[in-house]
């Protein structure tokens, strides 16, 4: 997973007009920008921030689903969930590596996360309260992530776009797996179906918020689109997600928790699409600013792992140094 509409990116840049024009010509020609290429400072800063937020989201995203690994209901589900959460860790690893090509280290990015300065996708500040949440996250959260990320496979920055191609394949597998969990629950006992509906009720709106603020309130979208870091606006992606997801919910026999949701034949240039009710942006900003149910717990868990692992990392370094010294002494 999981880029959320980028928050707080600052694309301001101070290069000469000639430099910026030359850069823009490369972008417009769909050339990939590679790590050693000249690039505007604002482009670099926007990417560092976006890739960093994305990497942190993968890592923090391991926690809510990790919460059910030890309680997965069958051995097959246990193995699949463990593999999925492991994939998310792998995504974090590729993305940190992609960000490192822009001159920022994983350690620095981790410090920012642990200090509470770096953002990650707010969806992970909601708790997983039942097994159905594992289905709902795969279906909706990985599903929303795919909508966000497929265009990123064509992002102008080479290392990011290549990381995304690899990641998107795994995300679509996660999405199908999550949907299949929901389908099994919906065809199960009434209690299981109620569990699935409850999960949809809790995850639907936060999933829509994953695409970020409405375009009219999204300050930095325009520059990111011009640089082809972003290819679609937040609202365009959100609409695609809703249009794809509503029929899937119908197939499950579940109700989307939005009384204003209606098919509108005039939407999407006459191809039709769904109108939806208002998104509670107060809630969104409250959670982004650290006041969701799980914000503190998520950071505390990351800090605990980091602090309790310090002796291991130090020992590995110390041992490597000693080995080198011993090898040199033996020569």
């Amino acid at each position: 997973m999981y880029s959320q509409g980028l928050i707080g990116a600052d694309g301001r840049t101070e290069e000469s007009p000639e430099f910026l024009e030359a850069f823009q010509r490369r972008i417009d020609a769909e050339e990939k920008i590679e790590p050693k290429d000249p690039m505007p400072a604002g482009y670099r800063r926007t990417l560092v921030r976006q890739i960093g937020q994305h990497a942190h989201s993968e890592i923090v995203g391991m926690l809510p689903e990790g919460n059910w690994i030890t309680r997965a209901p069958t051995l097959k589900r246990k193995a699949a969930l463990l593999a999925k959460v492991q994939d998310e860790g792998g995504h974090g690893l590729y993305l940190y590596a992609a960000a490192e090509t822009l001159g920022v280290s994983r350690e620095e990015m981790t410090e920012e996360l642990l200090a509470g300065k770096a953002k990650y996708s707010s969806i992970f500040n909601y708790p997983t309260l039942s097994w159905a949440d594992i289905g709902a996250i795969g279906w909706l959260v990985d599903g929303a992530a795919i909508m966000n990320q497929i265009p990123l496979c064509r992002c102008s920055y080479g290392p990011y776009s290549r990381a995304m191609i690899r990641i998107c394949k795994e995300e679509s597998f996660h999405q199908r797996q999550g949907y299949e969990i929901m389908l099994t629950l919906c065809r199960g006992t009434p209690e299981q179906k109620a569990m699935a509906q409850d999960a949809l009720n809790r995850w639907w709106w936060p999933s829509l918020m994953m695409f970020g603020p409405h375009d009219k309130d999204s300050a930095h979208t325009e520059q990111s689109m011009k640089w082809k870091i972003k290819r679609f606006t937040n609202d365009q992606l959100r609409q695609k997600f809703i249009d794809a997801t509503v029929p899937q919910a119908e197939f499950l026999g579940l109700t989307i928790p939005d009384p204003e949701l209606r098919w509108n034949p005039d939407k999407n240039d006459g191809r039709g699409g769904y109108d939806h009710g208002p998104i509670d942006w107060d809630e969104f900003w409250r959670v982004v600013k650290g006041h969701g149910r799980m914000n503190r717990d998520r950071l505390a868990a990351r800090r605990k792992a980091h602090d309790e692992g310090a002796w291991v990392r130090e020992a590995a370094l110390a041992h490597a140094r000693k080995r080198k010294a011993r090898a040199m002494a033996a020569e």
Partner: peptide, 14 residues
Amino acid sequence: SEWCGHAPMLEEDL
């Protein structure tokens, strides 16, 4: 599996 998400470094988590 209880370690998942809590290991001393990302590589060991995987």
